[in-house]
Nucleic acid binder design. Structure first.
Lengths: 117, 117
DNA sequence: GAATCATTTCCATAATTCTAGAAATATGGA
DNA sequence: TCCATATTTCTAGAATTATGGAAATGATTC
């Protein structure tokens, strides 16, 4: 049973910042959409429509935040999403930004779309 | 039954960017912690430890992203969290960044901490 | 080991964001 | 009205982030 690794506040900021830029969010969503198959850098550049050098800059940022992993395959470098990091961010936000203190009510209240009864 | 208003990608970036700065995240967490009571700007500045002019800059940013609301009370301006916006962000992330396409599996898979079986 | 393809690194520039003092604005009370 | 308090706006400088062309690196094939 995989444990969720909730990030420190600093790490949370880093992850949020990585996602808080339109090209990067687009890149990340593309990677999410293909799951563990991943995408080569060039393919991402084509899909998202940014020059490869800019893309590389953004991929470095996402990698640094732990949001993506890379593996080399032939001449390509394949990027994949790291869902654990994303799950950690969700856990952080749920715990710290979605409900007041303690009250593990965050998840329940989120799922029920809800204000208190 | 309150509906969740999922933000557009641009709005999502704006909300993420608002949270992706340590002072602002700290401000937001303070506001979450006090719920609908809210906090006066001065009180926030004291708790977070930033000069009031800097704080004002950050509050403007959070307000612009829809993450906080303000109301005047005497000479103070009281800030409160807007949970709807936060819920919208969570919904966006769940739908777009936590699982591949369609498969409303995102919530379930998040709650079960889980990779596929 | 040249030619080619994929990607990154380097670099300069542009753009944005952050910081905080000082001045301005708004409210409430003597 | 005058004064104190609360907060914002203005401003300028510092710092960070983003952009994209050109050169460098790595891998593959012949």
């Amino acid at each position: 049973m995989e444990m969720i690794n909730t990030p420190s506040p600093d790490a949370a900021v880093e992850i949020l910042a990585a996602l808080a830029q339109s090209s990067r969010l687009a890149v990340f969503r593309e990677l999410v959409s293909v799951g563990s198959t991943g995408l080569a850098a060039g393919a991402i550049a084509k899909r998202v429509g940014v020059p490869t050098s800019s893309l590389s800059f953004h991929l470095t940022n996402l990698k640094q935040a732990g949001l993506v992993a890379e593996r080399r395959e032939g001449r390509s470098i394949i990027y994949t999403v790291r869902f654990e990091t994303m799950r950690g961010l969700m856990a952080y936000l749920l715990e710290n930004c979605c409900a007041e203190e303690g009250s593990g009510a965050a998840i329940a209240s989120f799922i029920n779309e809800g204000e208190r009864a």
